[in-house]
Every structure is written in structure tokens, then in C-alpha cells.
Design a protein around this nucleic acid. Structure first.
Lengths: 102, 102
DNA sequence: TTGACATGCAACCTTTTGGTTGCATAATAG
DNA sequence: CTATTATGCAACCAAAAGGTTGCATGTCAA
């Protein structure tokens, strides 16, 4: 999954999906300095990493972001290196932000 | 930084540094199916991504892990996609694990 | 100084990655 | 059916990543 996130173009695609979920391939291509096929490949890699899921809608293919793997990885890596320190930070942060997790 | 974490060997090196911090290059090489120079390159990339810092100690170079960028990135990406949902999850998880964050 | 140890630098090679072009297939519009 | 739109597949290409070998530099021990 780190490999999938390693490319700026793929992160851009995730950004776009985050901005508006369920976009078609053509929509995701718009404005990118890249061919449609290149975008297809990137989306394929993101899908392979379970960061994006798709649904066929007639002749269109809709793409949806899936944040779960990001959480899983972050949990593992943060947990590994920073569990307690970070928990305290996150705790503090939520407190400062109004304790909206209840 | 995602690029730096994208390689399994580099993650292995971080694992080793997490297990025992401040190791020399030679120590980090031990048992890896890789030449010393390959490890040097990987450590250089990790250092470039600020995931590892070094200190010269005579003829040895000690390597130290730096978890801050991992936290920064995780914060940005998790915050971006899952801030509130994740806070709830993490909270639940800590609760289930015995609420050891206090 | 000499020898051994620890690391640094540079050239070179192979595989993977990211990208392109061209053609094929599938579905909607007329 | 035909034309158009939306996507899929495959071959091909250039650049980058990962790795190796060989040699250079710097440090400690005797």
C-alpha cells in the first residue's frame, strides 16, 4: 500500500475522489497532464491496494475511495513507533477540538 | 516520504532500528540479503526523508529512527479522510485493549 | 607507519515503474 | 444498425529504482 501511495499522481487521484466520490474514469482524467490509459493504470494500482473500489454503472465505471487501508497501515506504523506518545497527542487534540468523539 | 516507506527493505531497516536504536551500518547489514552499499543507499533515502538521523561516532556511523514524519503524514492523511470516524475507532480500540492510554 | 575495520563514492547493470500509442470491446443515442 | 461515448487490453519506451562491484577515504590498534 505504501507503494500505491508513493506516486504523487495517485495521491492526486485520491484527493480528487475525496473531493467528490464516485467519479468516472473520464472525469478523473480531466485536467491531468496524463493520458487516460495512464490514469487507468494508476486507478488499477489503487484498486489493487484496496484504496479504491469501483462499480460498473452502464458503460461508466465509478470509482470510490476506501480509507480503511490507510487507517490500518497508519495504525500499525504509528502503533509500532509511537503508540503511547501519539495516543496522548490524539487525545489532547480531541480535547482541544471539543471532544467530539463521544 | 511515502516513496521512502514504499520499499520493504527500508521498512525492515526501520523495524531493526525500532528494535534497537543507534545501530551502525555494519550492524544493520547483518543478516540482510543485500550488500553493504545497498543498505547504505536505503539508509540514505530514509535519511533524506527524515525518517532516520545519523551521528558520527569515530569511525562508526550510528543510525537513529525519527518517527515524527510518520506521525505528520499519518495525521495529514488520516485527518484528511477519516478524522472523526478514526478518532472513534481508535478510542474504541484503546477501550477494548484495556484503556492503557491514560 | 602499517594493517585492519568502517564507511563513502562512482560506474555500471537489471528490473520495475510510469507513460504513450493503437486497436478492441461494450453501452447509449439516433 | 450506425455513430458516438466510455472503457479495456497489449505492445512498446524512457526513466527511475534497486542492486552490484571496485576503489577511495578515514579511523582505530599495534
Amino acid at each position: 500500500m505504501f507503494r500505491a501511495l508513493a506516486d504523487p499522481n495517485r495521491r492526486e487521484l485520491l484527493d480528487r475522489l475525496h473531493h467528490r466520490n464516485g467519479q468516472t474514469l473520464a472525469a478523473l482524467c480531466a485536467g491531468l497532464a496524463m493520458s487516460r490509459q495512464a490514469v487507468t493504470k494508476h486507478l488499477g494500482i489503487l484498486e489493487g491496494a484496496h484504496l479504491v473500489t469501483t462499480r460498473r454503472e452502464g458503460r461508466e465505471k465509478l470509482h470510490f475511495i476506501n480509507p480503511v487501508p490507510i487507517y490500518a497501515i497508519a495504525d500499525r506504523w504509528i502503533g509500532k513507533f509511537e503508540r503511547s506518545r501519539l495516543a496522548a497527542l490524539a487525545d489532547l487534540k480531541r480535547t482541544l477540538e471539543g471532544d467530539e468523539h463521544g
